[in-house]
């Protein structure tokens, strides 16, 4: 108790190592609670980006399902033109890629740079597989004369999946860059972006392809 009291007193009265800070306010005399944001892994700004991206995609998915209420039959017919199997394979490709990226973070934190690069390369390659399958779906839709304006379903489908595919492309570039930099903080941040891309897809896939 005495030790605790003296610790609190010294913290409050000195205000830090210099001891010349102004007297603290009564609220500052309470023992410091750890800030939960201090425990956030990776860069704080990457979390701001992740939350903003989730909000954008989340709003898009809500708008998609709200519009579907007005024309469920048209949406179901339009959905039948999509590559469901390819989208399912893409889900496995992204979650596996995310796993490799998470292992790469562990490797770079252990100082194993070569292993980190060996893990990030297939992670990025699986991202390329995702893009190839997605491009094949777009090509088949175009060949069937289906465009952005054919039906509201396709407007949302192309907007949501196209915006997501752009993030996959950006993520591949980011993984390559952080693999070259080989700094733990950079790899952690690059992997966090990649996991966000993964997270968006696991929410987007059932809404656009299955329901």
């Amino acid at each position: 108790m005495t030790a605790l009291h003296s610790l609190s007193f010294s913290q409050v009265s000195s205000g830090g190592p210099g001891g010349d800070a102004p007297p603290a306010s009564p609220s500052a005399q309470a023992p410091d609670r750890p800030d939960p944001f201090d425990k956030l892994p990776g860069e704080f700004m990457m979390w701001v980006l992740i939350v903003s991206e989730l909000l954008v995609f989340g709003a898009g998915l809500v708008a998609f399902l709200a519009l579907r209420i007005t024309d469920p039959t048209g949406f179901a017919e339009a959905q039948s033109h999509l590559h469901r199997v390819g989208a399912g394979i893409n889900t496995i490709a992204l979650v596996t890629s995310g796993w490799l990226a998470a292992l790469a973070v562990q490797a770079v934190e252990a100082g194993r740079i070569a292993r980190m690069r060996t893990l990030l390369a297939p992670a990025a390659a699986l991202g390329m597989v995702f893009l190839v399958l997605k491009a094949s779906e777009y090509a088949d839709l175009a060949a069937a004369g289906i465009s952005f304006e054919t039906h509201a379903f396709f407007t949302f489908h192309i907007l949501l999946t196209g915006f997501h595919a752009a993030h996959v492309l950006a993520g591949i570039v980011l993984l390559a860059l952080v693999g070259i930099l080989a700094r733990p903080r950079a790899v952690e941040t690059g992997a966090a972006f990649w996991h966000m891309v993964d997270l968006v897809w696991v929410l987007l896939f059932p809404v656009v392809y299955l329901l």
Partner: peptide
């Protein structure tokens, strides 16, 4: 059936890929 499974996948990605399990309040 499918949407709660998607929610579970999101939960796993957030907690174990993005390591939010290290920040329980968040």
């Amino acid at each position: 059936a499918v949407l709660p499974l998607a929610g579970l996948k999101g939960h796993v990605i957030l907690n174990y890929y993005l390591q939010l399990a290290l920040a329980p309040e968040i």
